[in-house]
């Protein structure tokens, strides 16, 4: 089994109103040092036996379904589980 951790974030050019609201809330409870908050998504995939190249597979899934590259960026980590 291979574990893949995928992090999806809004592209820098895209405003994140949700993040802004959280940043304001943090300031309200005293964390004025926080200058920006960006909210993203975290996905964890367990991948079974496959002959396909993991990188190709993950990139394909990200482009086809898991992210919308018009508004989102992604990065991922691959962990070989025992």
């Amino acid at each position: 089994m291979t574990k893949v951790k995928i992090y999806v974030t809004l592209r820098e050019s895209v405003l994140d109103p949700q993040g802004s609201a959280v940043q304001e809330s943090l300031a309200k409870i005293g964390y004025n040092e926080v200058s920006d908050v960006r909210i993203g998504k975290y996905l964890e995939l367990q991948i079974g036996e496959t002959e396909r190249d993991i990188d190709t597979l993950v990139k394909e899934m990200c482009e086809k379904l898991l992210t919308n590259t018009v508004i989102e960026d992604y990065r991922y980590e691959v962990e070989e589980a025992n």
Binding site: V14, L15, P17, Q18, A21, N68, V70, I71
Partner: peptide, 11 residues
């Protein structure tokens, strides 16, 4: 169609 629909600005 081009572009995307984001969360409303006022949430």
């Amino acid at each position: 169609l081009p572009g995307a629909l984001l969360r409303n600005k006022n949430l």
